[in-house]
């Protein structure tokens, strides 16, 4: 069982985030971390490996500093990593990102790819299906549970009012929600072991892609303007000194809710 986990480094959502002068995510000023749902993807891969054997490879596309995120996945227990890093990629849209990731997947042996259901920064929630379209693998996305039985995979696809049970044959691409597991913290032993694990660094040319096909120049979408959301006009805050509920009720009545 060879599993590839897709991991994206993103600015920490807990801190202020912004776009730079070129209207791209400012990754220099930010505290960069692993995508929140990608931690669940790594954990899901490790649990499947523990149950079924095999190898977990992490694949990331991002600037040099994404190495820190790669190290964390190796410390959690992934076996090796491929890091595609290339200046030419800056400003890529989802189509170009999927083209590069698909080419990188083409160089690896895999039965299963696990991604986050959506990234923490742009949150498009499209990558797994784009990769399925490009690789011809089955896509069973939005998982809250994954089960493997030989060549057969069963996924519980989370819906708002329930779930669908999806079945497919490998090779497959799965994406996961945070309901699927609780990601482990890297142990000290894991952190030490990670230092000896192999990280292969590739450029897009190494993947057989002409740099002019990716990056801002090739983008099929363009950001025109960016502005801070206007502050919501300051609301009325009252401190409850025995009348708080009544004041709230008066507000709700004035707004015609009661």
């Amino acid at each position: 069982m060879n599993i590839v986990v897709l991991v994206k480094q993103v600015p920490d959502s807990g801190l202020a985030r912004q776009l730079d002068a070129e209207l791209r995510v400012d990754r220099n000023g930010a505290n960069n971390v692993m995508g929140e749902l990608d931690e669940y993807a790594v954990e899901a891969a490790l649990q499947l490996k523990e149950a079924h054997g095999g190898e977990v490879t992490v694949l990331t596309l991002g600037p040099d500093q994404a190495t820190e995120t790669v190290r964390k996945t190796l410390a959690m227990g992934a076996d090796k990593a491929v890091h595609v890093s290339d200046e030419a990629v800056a400003g890529s849209d989802a189509l170009a990102t999927s083209k590069i990731l698909a080419a990188a997947l083409g160089r690896l042996e895999w039965d299963l790819v696990i991604a986050g259901a959506e990234s923490t920064d742009s949150g498009m929630g499209v990558m797994a299906h784009m990769l399925a379209a490009r690789t011809g693998a089955a896509a069973a996305t939005g998982a809250r549970k994954i089960e493997l039985d030989g060549d057969a995979i069963t996924v519980e696809h989370q819906r708002e009012n329930g779930y669908d049970v999806l079945t497919a044959s490998l090779p497959a691409i799965v994406s996961v929600w945070d309901t699927i597991n609780t990601p482990r913290y890297p142990s000290l032993k894991g952190i030490m072991a990670a230092k000896r694990k192999k990280v292969e660094t590739l450029t897009v040319a190494d993947l057989g892609i002409d740099p002019s096909e990716v990056g801002a120049g090739a983008a099929t979408t363009e950001v025109l303007t960016a502005a801070d959301r206007p502050e919501r006009s300051a609301g009325q805050i009252v401190t409850d000194e025995g009348e708080g509920g009544r004041k709230l009720a008066a507000f709700l009545a004035a707004e015609k809710f009661i």
Partner: peptide
């Protein structure tokens, strides 16, 4: 910071009072 109306208080005091008023 995003509330149009906020009550700083214990929800177990505030909400029953809202129910009473309603």
């Amino acid at each position: 910071s995003m509330a149009d109306f906020g009550v700083v208080g214990d929800l177990f005091e505030v909400l029953p009072q809202v129910l009473e008023e309603a």
